[in-house]
């Protein structure tokens, strides 16, 4: 069979490894349960809507200086309209 190339393959992760994924990406969780930069715990990461994001809300990440995605329906509706 012909092997698919990376263009057609996507990567997803289970809820259970959320913290691990964040750690791999150089992120940490602060005492307010918000996602922050591991190298600078004062620096909170932002979503594509410019908001802070908690571990519970963390739904994923996209490029553009690592823009975070909330798992909220309203955020995802906005994201789904971006080409």
């Amino acid at each position: 069979m012909v092997e698919r190339n990376s263009i057609n393959t996507n990567i997803t992760f289970d809820k259970s490894v959320k913290k691990d994924i964040l750690a791999l990406l150089g992120k940490d969780i602060n005492e307010d349960n918000l996602i922050v930069e591991k190298t600078d715990l004062e620096q909170k990461v932002l979503t594509f809507e410019g908001e802070e994001i908690s571990l519970e809300e963390f739904g994923g990440i996209q490029k553009g200086s690592e823009v975070f995605i909330k798992n909220n329906l309203v955020s995802l509706i906005k994201l789904s309209k971006k080409v």
Binding site: S6, I7, N10, I11, T12, F13, D14, K15, K18, I21, F58, G59, G60, I61, Q62, K63, E66, I69, N71, L73, L76
Partner: peptide, 15 residues
């Protein structure tokens, strides 16, 4: 990610 892909949690991806 640099290729424009998204790294998503399963339920988020489904939605």
């Amino acid at each position: 990610l640099g290729e424009g892909n998204k790294l998503l949690e399963n339920e988020t991806s489904e939605l």
